[in-house]
């Protein structure tokens, strides 16, 4: 009796995933975490499909996909990481040799509202009272790369270098500033616009001519068994109403 019960129990346990519909798996850059969930919910409602998103630094997701992580669609925060996947032959962009751009990112200088320093502006960056400036890792986070480019254009990089604290991604860079450990940080507009950070801080939009555009690109993962569904989600992202929604969340539409 007991034995049979366990046999049935384990059979059900093993068999359960077979009956459930496999969700569409999206690997999404960390800066999309505040933006994507409502968009994915709309998509699920319209199509009846189930979508699961994983948010990580673009470099981390790239390594995972290179090592055959079970994702269907990759939304990177730049073009170089998805390009790497195309070159390695594990992803494609609907026949195009380059990733499909879906949005552009904006870099902002963010500071807590209760900071004793002057409000965020370019002048704040050359203020001697700025002891710690948080940025995302320039080697793997596109916003970190943009931050270093902007500081270099401003000829402030060498002066500020000893005062830079490097975070894993923009979310952690924001955390360093929000917890008061760094006086200011260069983060994404998508993070600065989240209710949590909008309540505790204020931001200054870094002029776009200071850094190369943060173009964000998408690719379809080749091992995916749900190519059509992944393409449908990508088309949905590129549709006019969703692009308008991206604009409200701090990304610049590409269409």
């Amino acid at each position: 009796m007991g034995k049979r019960f366990f046999a049935v129990f384990f059979a059900l346990l093993l068999g359960a995933p077979l009956f459930a519909q496999t969700p569409l798996r999206v690997a999404a850059a960390a800066d999309l975490e505040p933006v994507l969930p409502p968009i994915l919910a709309q998509f699920e409602k319209q199509t009846g499909m189930r979508v699961e998103a994983t948010y990580q630094a673009s470099a981390v997701l790239t390594t995972q996909i290179l090592n055959s992580a079970p994702f269907d669609l990759f939304l990177s925060a730049d073009l170089s990481f998805p390009q790497r996947l195309i070159d390695a032959g594990v992803a494609d962009a609907e026949g195009s040799p380059a990733p499909i751009p879906y949005a552009k990112g904006t870099l902002v200088l963010w500071e807590r509202r209760d900071s004793p320093l002057p409000p965020p502006s370019l002048a704040l960056l050359s203020d001697a009272a700025l002891k710690r400036l948080a940025i995302a890792n320039p080697e793997r986070a596109p916003y970190g790369r943009a931050a270093v480019a902007a500081l270099t254009t401003l000829k402030l990089y060498d002066t500020l270098k000893p005062r830079l604290v490097t975070a894993e991604n923009i979310a952690q860079a924001a955390q360093f500033v929000d917890s008061g450990n760094a006086e200011a940080g260069l983060i994404s507009l998508t993070s600065a616009l989240t209710p949590r950070l909008a309540a505790s801080g204020r931001y200054f939009v870094m002029p776009h001519d200071l850094y190369p555009p943060i173009e964000q690109g998408a690719v379809l993962v080749k091992v995916s068994s749900q190519h059509a569904a992944a393409r449908r989600l990508l088309d949905f992202l590129l549709s006019a109403p969703v692009q308008a929604q991206l604009a409200r969340s701090g990304l610049t539409p590409v269409k």
């Binding site: 630094a57 470099a59 981390v60 080697e139 604290v165 490097t166 975070a167 894993e168």
Partner: peptide, 26 residues
């Protein structure tokens, strides 16, 4: 170290952080 360090060479970039950086940078 990852949370508390800020990856500063000579003061908070330890071997484990260095190793992680190298892996993440391919």
């Amino acid at each position: 170290v990852l949370m508390l360090g800020g990856d500063i060479p000579g003061s908070t970039r330890t071997l484990s952080i260095l190793l992680y950086n190298q892996v993440e940078n391919f």
